[in-house]
Write a protein that binds this DNA or RNA. Structure first.
Length: 149
DNA sequence: TAGCGCCCCCTGCTGGG
DNA sequence: CCCAGCAGGGGGCGCTA
């Protein structure tokens, strides 16, 4: 089995490809990819995934049971629900903060950039997700209050 | 060092209007 | 064709063995 080492900066170094990671768990995950030990298969449809969490998400979306959790949009009179908190945040900003976002969004072809922080994003989804850091909310913590149902 | 769980963030694809 | 939403991957953090 391969083992990783630390360099003089204290970073974890992959002996296989030389990649460096500052977090030990991240390097551990990286090493597993080299060893191809990340096969998580769905018991129902046999589909395979790299990560257990991805398998869990697949199970919740394709083979839901009574315990399946969803995140609900906290905006007044909005019934939107999503399997992931991230998607719920994107929905919340895209739909309910459209005006605020339009003020800071600069679209150039398929590239979305933020005039507040000058970051660029390759998709609208990632731009909207990013906007939670650049937009002034009426209720600062509202987007963090999405409840798992 | 190894293993696990949980989370955030980003991305690409898809389906509906 | 565009956009909202879905679903998957990468990696960070914390904890325990």
């Amino acid at each position: 089995m391969l083992t990783y080492t630390r360099n003089e900066e204290g970073l974890f170094v992959c002996p296989d490809c030389g990649a460096t990671k500052k977090n030990q768990s991240t390097m551990h995950y990286h090493m597993k990819k080299h060893e191809e030990k990340l096969n998580h298969a769905c018991k129902v449809c046999k589909k395979e995934f790299l990560q257990k969490q991805t398998l869990d998400l697949h199970m919740r979306s394709k083979h839901p049971d009574n315990d399946t959790k969803k995140f609900k949009c906290t905006h007044d009179n909005c019934d939107f629900t999503s399997l992931t908190k991230g998607n719920c945040i994107i929905h919340y900003l895209r739909v309910h903060y459209q005006n605020e976002i339009n003020e800071i969004m600069l679209k150039d072809g398929n590239t979305f950039s933020c005039i507040e922080c000058e970051n660029e994003f390759s998709s609208s989804s990632s731009f909207y997700y990013h906007c939670k850091d650049c937009i002034q909310f009426e209720d600062d913590n509202k987007y963090t209050k999405f409840k798992a149902l």
